[in-house]
Amino acid sequence: MLTQQRKKLLLDRLATDGRIIAKDVSRELALSEDTIRRDLRELAADGLLQRVHGGALPASPTVANLAARRSMAREEKQRLGRKAATLISRQQRVFIDGGTTHLELVRALPLELSLTVITHSPTIAAALEPHQAVDVILIGGTLFRHSMVAVGAAALDQIQRLHIDVAFIGLTGLHPKEGGTTGDYEEAAIKRAVIARAAETVALMTQEKLGAVSAYMVSSVKDLASAVVPREADLKGFARTGIELIRA
């Protein structure tokens, strides 16, 4: 079997089964595991899957740059943002992560709602300008331009001094076994710190992120209280994880 044929078979298997086990595929095709692992490495380098121990899982497409992400699933993000806004109560201390879906959350907040918003995203902070009843705490640090958020030691130090009622965290993948992941090492550390300081954490997940995996671990599924997901999403894999799934 030619290399391109093998790669197509691997991607088809991933789309059908949701994962690839290298040992099983090598036995099925009567090829060495080294050959299958090499194919998986090359597919991972092209961003077509995420390698994990023993095989591969679907890669999240949402590690694209910010300009590209703005045009992805706009209507879906608006639905998620509107639903997430209903989970916020007056006078809460709310952390809002960066990202295009969280921007829709801010846009859906009632102008008269009084609360404190903590964010490490200058984009989110600027979007709150019309909300005169909202106190905004902007976390500083090194700007990670891919997501337009602050990362690094200074940001971590500030976050570790907070008490947060509810945190809305951005993930590029949420998998029932692999948990919540993202595509940057420093950003993952910030997200873990926020979750550790929050009484409740909510993830807003567009459909292409569900079942997908990125390079860096943020949390297990059980670390999240709930996830706001599209009403049409297939959620069978999450049935026994304990996370509350809120359809929008």
Rank of each mutant, 00 (worst) to 15 (best):
N65R: 09
N65D: 14
L66V: 04
A67S: 12
A67C: 14
A67K: 15
A68W: 07
A68K: 11
R69F: 04
R69H: 09
R69G: 13
R70N: 12
R70V: 14
S71V: 08
M72H: 07
M72N: 12
M72P: 08
A73I: 04
A73F: 13
A73P: 02
A73S: 09
E75S: 14
E76A: 03
K77T: 07
K77V: 11
K77E: 15
K77M: 15
K77S: 14
Q78C: 14
Q78A: 12
Q78S: 15
R79M: 11
R79W: 13
R79E: 08
R79C: 14
L80M: 05
L80W: 06
G81R: 03
G81L: 01
R82L: 15
R82D: 13
R82N: 06
K83H: 04
K83G: 00
K83N: 06
K83Y: 09
K83L: 05
A84C: 10
A84L: 04
A85K: 07
A85G: 15
A85C: 12
A85M: 15
A85L: 11
T86C: 11
T86G: 13
L87T: 06
L87F: 10
L87A: 12
I88S: 10
I88M: 00
I88N: 04
S89H: 12
S89N: 06
S89L: 06
S89M: 08
S89G: 03
R90C: 07
R90N: 09
R90S: 15
Q91K: 08
R93P: 14
R93S: 08
R93C: 05
R93N: 13
V94G: 03
F95E: 00
F95Q: 04
I96F: 04
I96R: 00
I96P: 00
I96V: 09
D97I: 01
D97K: 11
D97Q: 06
D97L: 08
D97S: 10
G98P: 09
G98D: 01
G98F: 01
G98T: 01
G99C: 05
G99S: 00
T100H: 09
T100E: 09
T100Q: 14
T100D: 13
T100P: 15
T101L: 04
T101G: 04
L103Y: 08
L103W: 10
E104A: 10
E104I: 10
E104G: 09
E104L: 09
E104Q: 09
L105D: 05
